[in-house]
Design a protein around this nucleic acid. Structure first.
Lengths: 210, 210
DNA sequence: AATAAATTCAGGGAATTCCCTTAGAAAATA
DNA sequence: TATTTTCTAAGGGAATTCCCTGAATTTATT
């Protein structure tokens, strides 16, 4: 029987997990926490094999919590548990010693499999996250359906283009030069792999980039 | 009991109607014709309250037939019965004095209701046809969110703009001059009330114009 | 602190779009 | 048949976008 601890500040998520593992004969939920600090304190006395750790906690970051936990409990298999497909967090957490990275929309089968895998000393990444990593490593823009991440400014410019603003109008509105806006425009064309404004607008709407 | 006459040159349609009204205790089919002339001649002696009149007849148009019939039988309630959602025909027929316009894909309930309505002196339009009229009238009004009807060519150009084609490319593709494509482009800008290509693409996608 | 990424700006030129007007021919409609 | 709409086309000019290059400054990230 695997002893599972859970840290999440959303009661609904906790309830969902409890229900999920109610009839699981391999996994037993032994503790539930809602903050990073209470998790660190709690697991000093509470014995647990695997921890499902939400990354977005109210008091301190999941990364700090992870560090603190592994200092005194290096054998604890921590699975990051989050809503965001953020590869940077993923890399950082696995670098620290976490054993898994799961999205909150995971099915019971995936959760079960992940917990058993990390308990047996392995690492578990959700297929979706693997795809994200693959995408990222293929970053070099020659793949068909890859859409590079747009910067804050680029999104801003794209939004204004959708609103039918000209380059000059955008420059005035943002208090930057005409040439700067043009730079962002050209970057957008390249990043999104389109030929002109029509393509930018189509991509923006179809892929909900704004 | 309503006396119903039917004019249609498709035996299968006639058979279908016969079956439909077999058990209808309000409607009784008293005559069936397959041409306009035979209808006009037949109804000079045959008493009928309602006529289901197919518009596409082999010998003469439904419009002419309708005129001739109403000359000597103004009390006859004529329901145009056709396959086409053509508002022009609809308007012309109702203008002449027809009391209803039904599509051939109508259900028994609709047919029954239509016949009773026109027999009682009312007019009956199929909901589908009403929608067509509403669409059309909204296309001609000058209210705020009015989206003018685009011509075939304009839609074609708009589609190509969405596909990131330049004016010259479109001209080559359609075997028309650069200036012609430009004309269509400007018409699109005006019709859709937008400032530039970005607006065209946004409108095209948001209003599903292509 | 060092590296990387994002933001800023620029010149110059080619290509394209936008805007105005006008107008004949073809097709659809009344 | 007469009228309206659509499609075609053009000239000329202004405005904007597109494309290339290069580079300094600020802002994350490691």
């Amino acid at each position: 029987m695997i002893n599972l601890a859970i840290t999440d500040d959303h009661p609904s998520v906790v309830e969902g997990l409890k229900t999920m593992f109610l009839d699981d004969s391999f996994v037993n939920i032994v503790a539930v926490y809602s903050t990073g600090k209470s998790t660190v304190e709690g697991l000093k006395t509470q014995q647990a094999d695997v921890l499902l750790l939400d990354i977005n906690l109210p008091d301190q970051s999941g990364i700090d919590t992870c560090k603190q936990l592994l200092e005194f409990a290096p054998q604890l298999a921590i699975i990051a548990f989050t809503s965001y497909k953020d590869t940077r967090h993923l890399k950082e957490l696995l670098g620290l010693g976490a054993k898994g990275y799961m999205l909150k929309n995971s099915s019971y089968d995936e959760m079960h499999h992940a917990i058993l895998t990390v308990y047996d000393g392995g690492e578990y990444l959700q297929p979706e996250m693997k795809d994200e990593l693959v995408k990222e490593s293929l970053n070099r823009s020659d793949t068909m359906s890859y859409i590079p991440k747009l910067t804050r400014r680029e999104k801003e410019i794209l939004q204004l283009i959708l609103q039918e603003h000209t380059t000059q109008e955008m420059a005035d509105k943002l208090f930057i030069s005409f040439k700067t806006v043009e730079s962002h425009r050209l970057n957008l064309l390249q990043k999104l792999g389109v030929k002109n404004t029509a393509g930018l607008v189509r991509m923006a709407i179809e892929h909900k980039l704004v």
